[in-house]
Amino acid sequence: MSASLAPECNQVKEQYDNCFLKWYSEKFLRGTATSDECESLFKQYEQCLSKALKARGIDSMLREAREDNRENDAEHMRPKP
């Protein structure tokens, strides 16, 4: 797996990525996923990462990017016939 932009988050990121990949290939793609089993690991990773994003001023850049991305969300989240 790839590294995190914040080296202090690498360990929890790796745990989360491994959990996600297993869930994705074994459950999500097979249509048997009932919940997100990796949520607690994600929360730990998110907590670590959000500090780094804030300290580097990336959080405000992300807010702008999200705004710019609304069209993509509307197009690709739309239910298909």
């Binding site: 590294a3 994705y24 996923a33 998110e46 990462l49 992300l62 969300d73 739309r78 298909k80």
Partner: peptide, 18 residues
């Protein structure tokens, strides 16, 4: 040099993973 996941959700209606 780095790839970070910042959010992940499943749409309950379409089943799409965002």
């Amino acid at each position: 040099i780095a790839v970070d996941t910042i959010s992940r959700t499943i749409d309950p209606h379409t089943g799409i993973l965002r």
